[in-house]
C-alpha cells in the first residue's frame, strides 16, 4: 500500500489544438487588413521624397501585421459576444477552434514583432504610432468603449484611420497635413459605414448587449446621424482639392462619389418601411466600401499620373519638335 493514492487527483486531459493555419489567418480579420494595407499604401505613395521599395514593403508588412494583431486581440476579448451574433458566430473562438488564451498570445506576439520590426528597420516614430494604434483599438475601443457607449465606433474609428498616417510617418519621419486629411476622411467615413451595418444587424447587437446606436437610440436617430456624418464626410473628402493638397482628378472624383454617398444616405433617411429600409441600408453599406476604396485609388492614380506626366511631356515635346522640323 502506498502512502499517496495516485487515483485521488484526476487531472483533466490537456486540450490538444486542432486549429489550422486558416483559423489563425481568420483571427487577423483579413478583410479589414486588406483595407488597412490599401490605405497605408496610399499614405506611402503620396508621401514626398524617395523611400526605398524594400523599406516601403517592410512598412506595409509591419502595419498590416499590426492591424491583424489588433484583430486577434479584439477577437480574444470579444469571444463571448461573438458567439451571440450570427455575423461573428463562425469566428475561430466561438467555434472552439482556438481558445481565448491562444488568440491573446498570438495577438500579443504579432503586436510586439510588428512594432519592434517597424521601429528597428524603419523609424521609431512610426513604430510608436503603430503601437499607439494597436493600443487604441484594443484597450480604448474594445475594452473601454465597445460595450459602454453608442459612440463606440465614432471614437474607436480613430484606430482604423491611423494606418495611412503611420505609413506617411514611416516614409518621412514626420507628420504633415496630407496624412491628417486621410485620417479625417476615414474617421468620418466610419460612422455611416458601421451604423448602416448596425441598422440591418441591430437584432444581433441587441442580443449581444452591444450598445450600438440603433439599439440604444433607435433606427430613426441612427438614420439622421448617418445623413449628418455623410454630409460632413463628403465636405471633408472634397476639401483637399480647393485647399490645394490634391489635384483636380481627385477633387472631381470625390464630388461624384460623394454625391452617390449622399443620395444613398438620403435614401436610408427616408426609407422607413422595414423591407425598403433594409435594402437602403445594405446598399449604403456596400457603396461605402466602394466609396473609400475608389477615393484612395484616385489618390494613387494621381501619384502615378504625376510620375508619368514628365515623360509624357518629354515625348510630346519630341513629337512636336520632329513635326516642326
Amino acid at each position: 500500500m502506498s502512502v499517496v493514492d495516485h487515483n485521488a487527483i484526476e487531472l483533466a486531459a490537456p486540450r490538444i489544438s486542432e486549429a489550422d493555419v486558416g483559423d489563425y489567418i481568420a483571427l487577423l480579420k483579413p478583410r479589414v487588413m486588406s483595407l488597412v494595407i490599401f490605405t497605408a499604401l496610399v499614405g506611402l505613395a503620396i508621401a514626398p521624397g524617395h523611400f526605398h521599395p524594400v523599406l516601403a514593403i517592410t512598412s506595409l508588412l509591419c502595419i498590416s501585421v499590426g492591424a491583424g494583431a489588433s484583430g486577434a486581440l479584439n477577437m480574444a476579448l470579444e469571444g463571448d459576444i461573438d458567439a451571440l451574433m450570427s455575423r461573428t458566430a463562425n469566428r475561430p473562438i466561438p467555434r472552439g477552434r482556438i481558445t481565448r488564451a491562444e488568440a491573446m498570445a498570438f495577438g500579443t506576439t504579432l503586436s510586439f514583432f510588428s512594432v519592434m520590426t517597424l521601429g528597428i528597420l524603419v523609424n521609431w516614430y512610426a513604430g510608436a504610432l503603430l503601437a499607439f494604434t494597436i493600443f487604441f483599438y484594443v484597450v480604448i475601443y474594445t475594452m473601454g468603449l465597445k460595450r459602454r457607449t453608442a459612440q463606440n465606433i465614432v471614437i474607436g474609428g480613430a484606430a482604423g484611420s491611423l494606418p495611412p498616417v503611420v505609413a506617411w510617418v514611416a516614409a518621412t519621419g514626420s507628420i504633415s497635413v496630407e496624412p491628417l486629411l486621410l485620417f479625417l476622411i476615414i474617421f468620418f467615413w466610419t460612422p455611416p459605414h458601421f451604423w448602416a451595418l448596425a441598422l440591418f444587424r441591430s437584432d444581433d447587437y441587441a442580443r449581444a448587449g452591444v450598445p450600438m446606436l440603433p439599439v440604444v437610440a433607435g433606427p430613426d436617430a441612427t438614420r439622421l446621424q448617418i445623413l449628418l456624418y455623410t454630409i460632413v464626410l463628403v465636405a471633408i473628402a472634397a476639401s483637399p482639392w480647393p485647399l490645394g493638397y490634391f489635384d483636380a482628378i481627385y477633387g472631381v472624383t470625390s464630388l461624384i462619389l460623394g454625391a452617390g454617398m449622399l443620395v444613398l444616405a438620403v435614401n436610408v433617411y427616408v426609407s422607413r418601411e422595414r423591407s425598403q429600409s433594409l435594402r437602403a441600408t445594405r446598399k449604403l453599406f456596400a457603396f461605402s466600401i466602394l466609396y473609400l476604396f475608389a477615393l484612395f485609388a484616385t489618390l494613387l492614380l494621381e501619384v502615378v499620373v504625376r510620375a508619368v506626366a514628365p515623360s509624357i511631356g518629354l515625348w510630346t515635346g519630341l513629337w512636336t519638335g520632329l513635326g516642326a522640323g
Binding site: E18, D20, V21, V54, T58, T117
Partner: peptide, 24 residues
C-alpha cells in the same frame, strides 16, 4: 496534421523575418 501546418507557418514567418532584416 494541424500541428505540422502550424509549424510550417511559423518557420515561413521566421524565414520572412530573416530575409527582411537581411534585405534592410
Amino acid at each position: 496534421r494541424s500541428r505540422r501546418h502550424r509549424s510550417i507557418a511559423i518557420a515561413l514567418a521566421l524565414g520572412v523575418l530573416v530575409v527582411l532584416f537581411f534585405a534592410v
